[in-house]
Design a binder for these strands. Structure first.
Lengths: 352, 352
DNA sequence: CGTTATATGGAGAACGTTCTACAACTCGTC
DNA sequence: GACGAGTTGTAGAACGTTCTCCATATAACG
């Protein structure tokens, strides 16, 4: 290491591609070629450069890379970080990315459209290589507009007609059907759904899809054309209130399907509190098969859609798009029922 | 808009600072000045530039900004995304950042030191403006080395001697003491702690701090010099096994303090399963006051350390450091007990 | 009216990469 | 020994900002 170089290191200056080039006695372009393992590099050159990189501890600047070419980063946009389903998706993404040279950076939009937009824009402005949007709230045409600037895969967004971006979903319609079918198989006829009270009821959301599946299954069973759905507000004070009202209704149904474990578990808690026995008075099936649902204390039957798998598939799909695929792909995953005590006392679903 | 510009927009080319400059009929430097609202801009110029920005929908490239100056992004490093305490911290961070022009990008290290290192390096390479490390695993001197390159605030990392970076913590020693004191006040003398079985038992971790507080409180109460601590492995098969073994021990204590709600809740579940009544046979106090603990179904007494507040304080501390503060700050937050049925049947802690 | 201070705008060099175009060199081959 | 084909390395423009000087215009002052 020359005196010059030592000084620089003491001053804590950045080791750049130029430092490496000087140290190895080659051109900047040569170092770049080795980094990207591009064509036209002799073994001897590669060895010298690799050595210099090692010695100097060189790391390419992502900012500079982004400015010119790839940044080797993919952005993940989460609608919410509290729903325990979403960490699973992240785990799947990270799992696939770990052995590659890509890295994930996560943004949290807190379900606010404006923040979602600005996070997506930021990720584009960072010249990230691709985006995974988990349950985005933005309308399809807006996402398509973004997709013209950066490869996008949407997870939990039902828009099989999209041509500009890919989608990866669990079949939420079918999931809801499975839940209803399980309840029917247990002999319950009187079934209601507890859904999410969203301001904008866009059809692409998983919640609406589950509603569709719920209605179809109820009608298929010949249980009248009106499939009762109660909407639960998201905000804490109204939320519990609506659930209590539901539980104390004189015409309360015998069984209930909740759009998410989050709601199902709160419902279970309130039921205990109000003396409503589960499953004797009320059978409950949730959605997501979260780790809380599996607790012996909770024992909530739930529809399992492997978030981890969704994350893995989405990541692979995104990478293939980054690497050149153009036609849109729309992938479906089959959910399944995990039966537990909230469905029947024994915890087993009757075989049909 | 000139014909030239229209063409560019059709080609979907990026609107750069140069586009804005041409459109407004001013220099690139002028636009930059307006963007950074720097000194030496007349009202007339500002108006024209602002208008051009509006019309063209210009957004500065974060990649280019990072290359030269600030990127207005702060990185948040999470050790784990499954522990429900951590989303709270994020919520706090986002809350403070929302009205500012900063944005948070999150990386998840999955408790792996190597991934943690490379994520921090990436964030530095992106020229982010600052980093919030939540419960990092890296030793203090390594973090200090990174802190020479980028402002850093560590949360859940007990190193009040650090001079290169700030720390924001709940007083975990005191938290554990409070838990023990509550159990003592209920008349329990026979108290054990369920702690985390970590490979590297570094003193800075919240877990070790809680162990210290536990021991001190036990000794202060004159309950022998040996304060029993059982370590629970993290991995699923061994984890439940160790808990079951604990529950079925003939000399099982009368009360237990768990380092985290995560473990306390699993313990509660297994207790039910094995016929151990809570709190009659075993009183339990957890840590974090997670939303699950608050469920009527679970009703777990827990030490509350507001993750949200920790996130808020950390963010403010980081921003002040970004804006020039140099001396290290070490902030402590006082935790408190939230009493529930797992402590006494009534749910109320006896007044002392 | 000349001189100096102040306010406003612009030129152009960085920042650290990627990547195209080209130069130089080594082999065959006729 | 001239020529084409391949191989290996380099020069230098470009990416989109920031920010330090500098130039010019205007105001203030004696």
């Amino acid at each position: 290491m020359s005196i010059e170089e030592k000084k620089r290191l003491q001053r804590n200056d950045r080791v750049t591609i130029r430092t490496v080039a000087t140290h190895a006695g080659v051109s900047v372009a040569a170092v770049s070629k080795v980094m990207r393992n591009a064509y036209g590099v002799s073994e001897a050159l590669r060895a010298r450069v690799t050595n210099a990189i090692e010695v100097l501890g060189y790391r390419p600047s992502r900012a500079a890379r982004g400015l010119r070419g790839r940044s080797f980063t993919i952005g993940v946009l989460l609608i919410d970080i509290r729903n325990p389903f979403l960490p699973e998706v992240i785990a799947g993404v990270n799992g696939v990315l770990a052995p590659s040279h890509y890295q994930a950076m996560i943004g949290v939009s807190d379900a606010r459209v404006q923040l979602e937009t600005s996070l997506i824009e930021s990720m584009i402005d960072y010249k990230m290589d691709g985006l995974i949007l988990v349950a985005p709230r933005l309308p399809s045409d807006i996402i398509a507009k973004f997709a013209a600037q950066i490869p996008i895969v949407a997870v939990g967004y039902h828009d099989a007609g999209a041509t500009a971006f890919d989608t990866v979903n669990a079949d939420d319609q079918r999931g809801a059907e499975i839940a209803v079918e399980a309840l029917l198989a247990c002999g319950y006829r009187d079934i209601e759904m507890l859904s999410l009270g969203e301001r904008e009821g866009h059809q692409v959301s998983v919640v609406r899809q589950r509603e569709i599946g719920f209605r179809r299954a109820i009608q298929r069973a010949g249980l009248g054309s009106s499939a009762p759905i109660t909407k639960i507000p998201i905000a804490p004070p109204k939320r519990e209130e609506t659930m209590r009202k539901f539980l104390s209704r004189k015409n309360r149904p015998r069984a209930v399907f909740c759009w998410s474990d989050l709601d199902a578990i709160t419902l279970l808690s309130l039921a205990i509190e109000m003396g409503v026995r589960v499953p004797e008075d009320l059978a409950v099936v949730g959605y997501d098969n979260s780790s809380t649902a599996a607790l012996g204390l909770v024992n909530l039957a739930s529809i399992d859609q492997s978030g981890r798998e969704l994350g893995q598939v989405a990541t692979r799909t995104l990478i293939s798009r980054i690497e050149g695929r153009t036609g849109a792909e729309h992938i479906f995953q089959m959910p399944s029922l995990v039966s537990r005590n909230s469905l029947t006392r024994s915890g087993k679903a009757p075989v049909t």
